[in-house]
């Protein structure tokens, strides 16, 4: 493992960055250059080892740590764990398939189509989506519907900033997202386990909430392909499947959009999918979760611990009905 020199002043928060690798990955903020230029290491095909791949992933520059309320104080999950245990069915249904198979994804150039009930529709290059905002680092809990969880230092921009720039019309009540469809780049799409493209959506007030985040990196570097490069959603109070990866379309609509897991099994995966220890998945309990790397489980928190911030979005709603 290489050990680049990091000036100590650039280490943001010792309590948060306990892991040596993570500390290293924060490096080199002094250099200048366009955000998101450069070549992701995943182009060096055959890198099926997450660590080896990480060594080549480009560090993101000019990243500011987000305010304290966007950073949980728990120990972050190790980089290896967070990048080797993924659900990304576009690259296979096994947890280790994405790290193995996602080197075929080409993340440059990348653009996102914006359409629907919006003042500024169009096809927008990724750079132009990211550039107007300041990259910030947020440390969020992430809870999968399968009862495992992790704590990840994401790098990205607030979703609300981006959506506001597209000038949604007043009758846009929902926003939806789509993942790339490309059987060559995403071999898992050769089988129809999901009606591709993968789709997710949020109610407009959820999408505009300050916690909703668009990530372009994690652990100080650009996103590894298996974690949803080059741009993904992170909605920390909802089950992980809401946090759609490798986004190529953002649409605004009056009606609630169709979403992939809800389409597949609506009795098991609701549109809202807020983390809720009180409402079990029909087949397993949601009361507890296992943090990656742990042997024992820990209690799951309502709204994944973000209840103070987001519970008001659902005031008066029966969360057993709208799971």
């Amino acid at each position: 493992m290489q050990t680049p020199h990091i000036p100590t002043r650039e280490i943001t928060d010792e309590a948060t960055f306990m892991n040596r690798r993570e500390v290293l990955q924060l490096g080199a903020t002094a250099a200048m250059g366009a955000v998101l230029a450069g070549c992701p290491a995943a182009d060096e095909a055959g890198a099926d080892d997450a660590t080896a791949e990480a060594a080549g992933l480009r560090a993101l520059e000019n990243v500011t740590p987000a305010p304290e309320r966007f950073r949980v104080s728990e120990a972050t999950t190790s980089y290896d764990d967070a990048t080797s245990y993924n659900n990304f069915y576009e690259f296979g249904t096994g947890k280790r398939d994405p790290a193995k198979n996602s080197h075929t994804l080409r993340t440059e150039p990348w653009s996102v189509v914006v359409d629907g009930e919006v003042g500024k529709p169009g096809k927008i290059a990724l750079e132009d989506i990211v550039k107007p905002s300041t990259l910030e680092e947020r440390v969020y809990r992430f809870r999968c519907v399968e009862a495992w969880s992790m704590v990840v230092p994401w790098v990205g921009i607030p979703l609300a900033d981006v959506l506001a720039r597209f000038e949604p019309k007043s009758d846009a009540r929902y926003v939806s997202f789509e993942t790339l469809v490309d059987r060559e780049q995403m071999p898992g799409q050769r089988r129809r386990v999901i009606d591709w493209p993968y789709r997710e959506g949020l109610r407009m007030d959820e999408a505009m909430h300050p916690l909703a985040f668009l990530a372009v990196g994690m652990y100080g570097k650009v996103l590894p392909n298996q974690n949803g490069a080059p741009i993904r959603l992170v909605v920390p109070w909802k089950y992980g499947f809401k946090s759609i990866k490798s986004i190529v379309r953002i649409s605004f609509s009056k009606e609630q959009p169709q979403t992939s897991w809800n389409d597949l099994a609506d009795d098991e995966y609701g549109f809202f999918a807020n983390v809720n220890p009180e409402v079990d998945h029909p087949r397993w309990s949601q009361a507890r979760e296992r943090k990656l790397g742990d042997y024992r489980k820990r209690p799951t928190l309502p709204f994944n611990g973000y209840g103070d911030e987001v519970a008001s979005l659902y005031a008066g709603m029966d969360l057993r009905k709208y799971y």
């Binding site: 999950t77 764990d81 967070a82 245990y85 296992r290």
Partner: peptide, 8 residues
Amino acid sequence: GPGPEPVD
């Protein structure tokens, strides 16, 4: 080492 999900 245990890896991400040893129990799994």
